[in-house]
Write a protein that binds this DNA or RNA. Sequence first.
RNA 1: GGCCCUAUCGUCUAACGGUUAGGACGUAUCCUUCUCAAGGAUAAAAUCAGAGUUCGAUUCUCUGUAGGGUCACCA
Length: 493
Amino acid sequence: MNTENKKIVTRFAPSPTGYLHIGGVRTALYAWAYARKHNGTFILRIEDTDKAREVEGSIDHIIESLKWVGVTWNEGVDIGGPNGPYLQSKRLASYRKYAQILVDKGLAYADPYTTEEVEAFRQKAQEEKRPFLFRDHRPENPPKWDGTQPLRFKVTNIKSYQWNDVVYGSLSAGTEALDDFILIKSDGYPTYNLSHMIDDLEMGVTHIMRADEFIASTPKFLALYEALEITPPVFVTLPPIMAPDGKKKLGKRDGAKDILDYKAEGYLPEAMLNFLVFIGWNPGDEREIFTSEEFIQSFDISRIHHSGGGFNVEKLDWINREHLKKLSYEEQEEYISKFIPDSLKKLPTYTNTIIHNITPVIMERIAKGSDIVKMAEDGELTYFFGKPVYDKDALFFKNSKIPEDNKYELLANYLVHAVSLLTDITDSDFMKDKIKEKLWPYAEEVGRGDILWPIRYALSGLDKSPDPFTLLEIFGKEESIDRLRNAISLLGK
RNA sequence: GGCCCUAUCGUCUAACGGUUAGGACGUAUCCUUCUCAAGGAUAAAAUCAGAGUUCGAUUCUCUGUAGGGUCACCA
């Protein structure tokens, strides 16, 4: 492999027609990792030859998406490079030059038909259940190409092509795969068929990574490479990403959304990378959690799979959690503060100390990528920054053994006693284990639920929260006792 | 319909032609427990079907079936 000792050059070449979804990002990741591993060059090129479908702002969005997952490039639209420009609309002269070579060789001709006429041919072929082949309608005496008609490639060598693909091995196709396709559109822009090839040549691209939908058009490319006397690069065809059931191809509904949506939902970029590269590849051992660097080192294009893999959000959630655990304490704090709503950040109780204290508690409670966002939205973070509001009846444990008669007074007494126990603990000893040690005998005496639930509720105001000892430590002696006194007065004492 | 690609637990996948077909996610049960999480333990769960080659097939060949791609002045 790579015996020529040629420097490896790969590229990712999206069209600016919207956001980048996970399929595109994975392609970029593979191309990038391969170049990085072999100290090669990775290029970001933008294929903006379809002016009708172009979406304003796409390029910036694509760049932001790639940077988020940690992909960097040596040459590209935004940074230039020795073989620029990297925007196809600025390279029209190159495409024309090669188109002219084909015209001169008699291997390209102007398409004289109207769109309607071609559409009629297509319709007919479809009705007769035959593949549509333009070459069946090739004009006898095509007009001279003046740039206003589409320019078509003239396939002269109709044969069954056989070629090699790093992933799929030997591939072949019937002659039906060969046709007179369009090189230059009537608006003067080239089609992908021509432009990608010229750019790859001029930019020295050695390996093309792209999804399997291009297998069917490879014979056409091969015919064009031959006509242009270009040695094709190495083909690395990637398997498709399927919907979670592993059967259908991934659609928008199943998660083919903007990669940056995952960022907004709380997924870590390294988790996203880890997850995406594992759809269609694995290192062959039992490792599952990878940093980008580990991935690059382990990546081997010969281990890319042939079959499509499903997009499984649960696995992504798990991977995200594993990466969350690997963060340093400071990084975890930063991660959490990023998702705390502005309304809470404005409060005087929003301090570095409280963030520091609640970080491990929140981290432990994040199971899914979007949990941090959900917790923020559902108000599960609010009580950390302000006194909870709740109904006094909520203070009672659901299996309470407290007699109904004067239950408010009894519970208040329990809490008063708890407060007195807590008061005995010194500020420096006000820590989870010590608190538990102090409170436990009393809890055993009156029934654990009947005192622990109310304490927890007085502190959080929520049915679901971390355990009371943890909360007591987080809030500290003074604030904790204050919250407990609030509960006591709510009970009428 | 033509051409092409693919096929191992529900999902992602491992397995020089020889394994009790392995791991992970998820699921279930149990432990822990004031709640919700987390954590620990255990379990169920797969070679698409049929022929052929072979002493022996998940692995090689063929056929069928299923899924996917493609047949654009989209990439």
